[in-house]
């Protein structure tokens, strides 16, 4: 698997030294080259980013202070009303609760599973590549496709899961009525698709742990579980934090799976599985209220920022703890 990665970067001395050239002009040119080139190289990214990234963000802020008429493409300035409206909606708070709940149901079991699968893959197994590819297969399936398959399996009356449950004498679960279970179902879709991906990231981190640690621990008489707890897990901490942060940013934006969970795509009659982005879509493209949708987009961004800051503080703490130990 590392055949490409380990290839030597470039033959360092392949070109013969050049004869010296006329000094002054070439030097000036070279200095100019040295100064300007970096900016030339980064400019495609930054120009594009300014157009498709920065401008829309600023424009979203502007629209969020307006009552926008999509068909006539014009707005009226109304101040913070849209923000106040959003924050005054019980639906918003339900959506916020659901988003976090689905996130927790997906992140926690997923990371635990990923750590254990990675630990298994980290053993000296036959057909490494096969197993690694095997756990990653779900990743290539589009979330929409995953959601269609799982929504089918999680049908209230005629779904596979409930059929099995009732066959063994358990009560059927109301996947589309009970908020808790709808979150479990949606989180399952997320877990199906992402566990393998995170497994590989954690596996990479595990393989980076110097072997000597284990050797030494073995000499000290530490068992496999002990080694896992006191060597593997602590070494995974930075990677885990990285995984958690990316999972948070992605998880708080969840849309595809709840959208496809039933045929209406609006989060259920009692907003059981309405998420922030689903709510944003409904306000923007169901009710055609772009001002409110823009305000909600900014609120979502602020939430992500706040969570990011909390992450940052926690990370700092943990790193310091590491240092003290």
């Amino acid at each position: 698997m590392t055949a490409t990665a380990t290839r030597p970067p470039a033959p360092p001395t392949s070109r013969p030294p050049r004869p010296p050239r006329v000094i002054s002009f070439s030097q000036r040119l070279s200095r100019w080259d040295l100064k300007v080139s970096p900016y030339l190289y980064i400019s495609p990214f930054f120009i594009m980013f300014a157009v498709v990234g920065l401008f829309p963000i600023a424009f979203t802020a502007v629209i969020s202070f307006m009552d926008w008429d999509l068909v006539r493409n014009s707005g009226q300035f109304i101040g913070f009303d849209q923000y106040a409206w959003i924050l005054g909606q019980p639906q918003f708070w339900t959506a916020l609760r659901n988003t976090f709940s689905i996130f927790l149901f997906s992140a926690v079991p997923q990371l635990i599973a990923a750590i254990f699968i990675a630990a298994m893959l980290d053993r000296n197994i036959r057909a490494k590549t096969f197993w690694r590819m095997g756990v990653l297969v779900p990743f290539v399936m589009a979330p929409v496709a995953v959601a269609l398959i799982f929504s089918n399996m999680f049908g209230d009356n005629h779904g596979l899961v409930n059929n099995i449950l009732t066959d063994v004498g358990l009560p059927a679960i109301q996947w589309h009525k009970d908020a808790f279970w709808s979150h479990v179902a949606i989180a399952t879709m997320v877990n199906f698709r992402w566990t393998g991906y995170n497994t590989l990231i954690l596996l990479a981190a595990m393989q980076a742990i110097p072997r000597d640690y284990y050797e030494a621990a073995t000499v000290d008489g530490a068992g496999a579980f002990r080694q896992f707890r006191s060597i593997t897990l602590p070494s995974l901490k930075p990677t885990l934090i990285f995984v958690i942060i990316t999972a948070t940013i992605g998880g708080l934006q969840i849309f595809d799976e709840p959208r496809m969970f039933d045929q209406f795509g609006r989060g259920g009659a009692a907003q059981q599985w309405l998420t922030i982005t689903l709510y944003l879509y409904d306000i923007g493209w169901g009710q055609w209220n772009f001002g409110r949708a823009a305000a909600l987009a900014w609120i979502l961004f602020l939430i992500i920022l706040i969570i990011g800051l909390i992450n940052l503080l926690v990370t700092r703490r943990l790193v310091r703890d590491e240092g003290r130990r």
Binding site: V52, G53, F55, P56, I57, F59, T60, I63, W68, L70, N73, I249, L252, Q253, T277, L280, G284, F290, A293, A294, A297, W298, L300, F301, I304, L305, G308
Partner: peptide
Amino acid sequence: AVPMQLGVVPLYI
């Protein structure tokens, strides 16, 4: 950290 959602409204307009 910027979510796609932050751009969709103006991009759409």
